[in-house]
């Protein structure tokens, strides 16, 4: 079944646009990050303030731009770190096998049993983390899916003749894995990373929404919603726009992840 490629292109363009907008936020945002416009506090969206203003008269459009830096950084950072962790666990389990496989995969199964979001919320409440530590915490609850797919992929690649040949030539085990086995898992890893970006952004925004993630004055899409929920009925725009940004970003990540994953699924089905 051939699917239209258009949604995937749009998703890629949206993501690239978001990332570049976040990088250039200070240059292209219409106002300074903490500029107050006391005459226009709690103003509804208008031509002067596209997304409206908050209770201090700060321009929401500007804050959404700056929030993008934090949210995207956490999403991308946690995706890379969690995929690295997952690859380490999955590749070791899949290549070494036996007791290492049992130990690591039982741990992975156990971690998957613990409800992810509450676990992360407790850890964040304890650690009161800076942004970098938040990235680490999000990765610590998000590596399991990668570990599983990498293990399966490594197992099937390690059983191939060229790996046996490399071993027979006396190549050191870690080198066999790094040079011969892992390159074969790159398609799997690409999908895993893309999906992990979306998941990371969702997790960060959710825990920030509950007040235990990114702390003010740093703005992230999640903690903007945390501040907005008390005034939801009078100033809905404060909640609508940051949430819409989360939705669009995660949607783009998932669409892209599907697109990269789809051809692989098609081939594995026909095999």
């Amino acid at each position: 079944m051939r699917q239209s490629r258009r949604p995937h292109r749009i998703a890629l363009i949206v993501l690239l646009a978001l990332i570049s907008a976040a990088l250039m936020a200070p240059l292209i945002a219409p106002y300074a990050f903490d500029a107050l416009d006391l005459a226009n506090r709690r103003a509804a969206p208008s031509s002067g303030h596209w997304f409206g203003t908050d209770e201090l008269g700060r321009d929401l459009f500007t804050r959404v731009f700056f929030g993008a830096r934090v949210s995207l950084a956490i999403g991308l950072g946690s995706a890379l770190l969690s995929v690295m962790l997952g690859t380490l666990v999955g590749a070791t389990a899949g290549y070494v096998g036996r007791w290492a496989d049992d130990l690591l995969m039982r741990t992975t199964d156990a971690m998957l049993c613990i409800p992810r979001l509450p676990l992360l919320m407790i850890a964040a409440a304890f650690a009161q983390p800076e942004v970098w530590l938040l990235v680490v915490l999000v990765s610590c609850v998000g590596w399991m899916e990668t570990a599983r797919v990498v293990r399966t992929s490594v197992q099937s690649i390690a059983a191939r003749d060229f790996v046996a040949a490399a071993r027979a030539l006396g190549v050191a085990p870690w080198r066999v894995v790094a040079r011969h086995v892992l390159p074969g898992t790159i398609p799997v890893l690409t999908v895993a990373t893309t999906l992990a970006v979306g998941r990371g952004i969702l997790l960060e925004s959710t825990i920030s929404f509950f007040g235990v993630g990114v702390q003010p004055p740093t703005a992230s899409w999640g903690n903007m919603l945390y501040q907005a929920q008390t005034t939801m009925s009078t100033e809905p725009w404060l909640a609508v726009f940051p949430g819409a940004m989360i939705f669009v970003t995660v949607l783009a990540c998932n669409t892209l992840g599907d697109a990269i994953g789809a051809p692989r699924q098609a081939t594995s089905r026909s095999r």
Binding site: P7, G198, L202, S205, T206, F209, L225, Q229, M232, S233, P236, A239, V240, G243, A244, I246, F247, V250, L251, C253, N254, T255, D258
Partner: peptide
Amino acid sequence: APLAVAGISLPVFWFGLLLQLVFAN
């Protein structure tokens, strides 16, 4: 299919707030 992708991408707390805003408020 697109609706389903949208569904899994939707931040649950935001969706809840929106429904509250529309149907309750």
